[in-house]
C-alpha cells in the first residue's frame, strides 16, 4: 500500500504525498516518496527499538540461557545443565514456601486494595469543595518512591516504639510492651506477612482508585441518562452500563498491578528480608538472595522465570485490551 498509494486514492496520506513530492524527489529520483518515508521512519524508530532489543529482549533470552546453565558469579565459563536448576528449585522447601507466600500476598492484597480503591473512587466521583487537594493527598502513597515509604513503615512497625502499637495499646486493644499481647509486627511469623501486605495495599489502593475514576469519567453522561430514562435503577445502570464500558480499563489497571505486585521485591526485602523463618519469603526475594547474594546466577534466573507463567496471562490480557483502544 505504500508505493502504489502514491497515485492518489482514498488514503489521506497518499494525497499528502502527492502534495509534497516537489523539489527533493528530483535529487534522488530512484527513490519513490513512499520509500523515502519508510527509510526516514525506520531511521527514527531504530535507536529506541535497538535499545529495547539489546537491553530487554536480549537479556530476557540470556536469562533463559542462564537458567539452563551452571553460571556463577565467580566463574566466567558456564556449562549447559539442562533443567537441573528448575528441578533443584522444585526440590527446595523454601521455593514452595515462597510460591505460596507470593500467591497469598497477591490475592489478599488485590482484594483489600480493590475494596479500598472502589470505595475511594466513588467518594472522589462526588462533587465537593477541596476535591483537588484531597485527591492530591490521597494519591501520595503511590507517588512516593517505594524504597523511601517502606522506611517509614519499618519505623512504624518498630518492635518497641511502634506508633501503631502505641495507639492500639492506649485504646486498650492490645497489651502492654513486654507482655504477650504486644504485637511484634516484623518479628512474629504470623504477623510479618500481614505487615508486608498492608504496605503494598497502602501503596497501591490510590492507584486502583484513580484507574477506576478514569474509567467512570470516560462513560458519557448521555449513556447514563439514556439508561435512566429507560427506567434502570442505580445498580442496574452500574451492572449493565458502567461496568461493561469500563471493563477494558479495569482489566489493564488490575493486570498492571498484578505484574508490579508479583515482581516487587522492595517491600519485603526492606522490611524483613524474607524472615522471620521464611514467613515472608516471596519469589523475587528468593531469586535475589540466590542469584546475587549467593552468586548462583543460573539458579536465581530459574527461580525468577517461575514468575513468567504467572505473568503471561496478564500480558496477554493487556495486549488484547490495548489493541481495542483504537475503537
Amino acid at each position: 500500500m505504500t508505493g502504489s498509494s502514491l497515485h492518489g486514492g482514498p488514503d489521506p496520506m497518499a494525497r499528502a504525498a502527492v502534495v509534497s513530492v516537489p523539489a527533493r524527489a528530483a535529487e534522488r529520483p530512484w527513490l519513490t516518496h513512499g520509500a523515502r518515508r519508510l527509510m526516514f521512519g525506520y531511521t527514527l524508530l531504530a535507536p529506541a527499538a535497538l535499545y529495547v532489543l539489546l537491553l530487554v529482549g536480549a537479556p530476557f533470552l540470556f536469562s533463559l540461557y542462564l537458567a539452563v546453565s551452571d553460571a556463577n558469579v565467580g566463574e566466567p565459563i558456564a556449562h549447559f545443565v539442562g533443567l537441573e536448576n528448575f528441578k533443584a528449585a522444585l526440590e527446595m522447601d523454601v521455593f514452595w514456601i515462597s510460591l505460596r507466600n507470593s500467591v497469598v500476598f497477591l490475592v489478599v492484597a488485590a482484594v483489600l486494595k480493590s475494596l479500598l480503591g472502589t470505595s475511594l473512587a466513588f467518594l472522589l466521583l462526588q462533587d465537593f469543595k477541596g476535591k483537588k487537594l484531597i485527591r492530591g493527598l490521597v494519591v501520595i502513597p503511590f507517588t512516593l518512591p517505594i524504597a523511601i515509604s517502606v522506611l517509614s513503615w519499618k519505623w512504624m512497625y518498630d518492635s518497641q516504639f511502634s506508633v501503631i502499637n502505641w495507639v492500639l495499646s492506649r485504646m486498650g486493644l492490645i497489651g502492654q510492651f513486654g507482655t504477650e499481647g504486644w504485637p511484634i509486627w516484623l518479628g512474629d511469623p504470623k504477623l510479618a506477612l500481614v505487615a508486608c501486605i498492608l504496605v503494598n495495599v497502602w501503596r497501591t489502593f490510590p492507584f486502583s482508585a484513580i484507574v477506576l475514576l478514569a474509567g467512570f469519567t470516560s462513560v458519557p453522561v448521555e449513556v447514563i441518562d439514556a439508561a435512566k430514562v429507560d427506567g434502570c435503577s442505580f445498580f442496574q445502570r452500574f451492572r449493565h452500563v458502567v461496568v461493561p464500558m469500563i471493563f477494558p480499563i479495569l482489566m489493564i489497571g488490575f493486570l498492571f498491578d498484578t505484574v508490579f505486585t508479583l515482581s516487587d521485591l522492595s517491600v519485603v526485602y526492606l522490611l524483613t528480608q524474607g524472615g522471620p523463618a521464611n514467613a515472608t519469603k516471596i519469589l523475587p526475594v528468593l531469586a535475589y538472595q540466590i542469584g546475587i547474594q549467593a552468586g548462583s546466577l543460573g539458579r536465581g534466573a530459574a527461580i525468577a522465570l517461575f514468575l513468567v507463567p504467572l505473568l503471561i496471562p496478564a500480558l496477554i490480557l493487556v495486549l488484547r485490551n490495548l489493541k481495542r483502544r483504537e475503537y
Binding site: F60, L66, G291, G300, L307
Partner: peptide, 12 residues
C-alpha cells in the same frame, strides 16, 4: 511490563 526481577541477573 517485563519486570526487573526477570532481567536483573542477565543485566548484571
Amino acid at each position: 511490563l517485563v519486570p526487573p526481577i526477570i532481567l536483573f541477573l542477565p543485566l548484571s
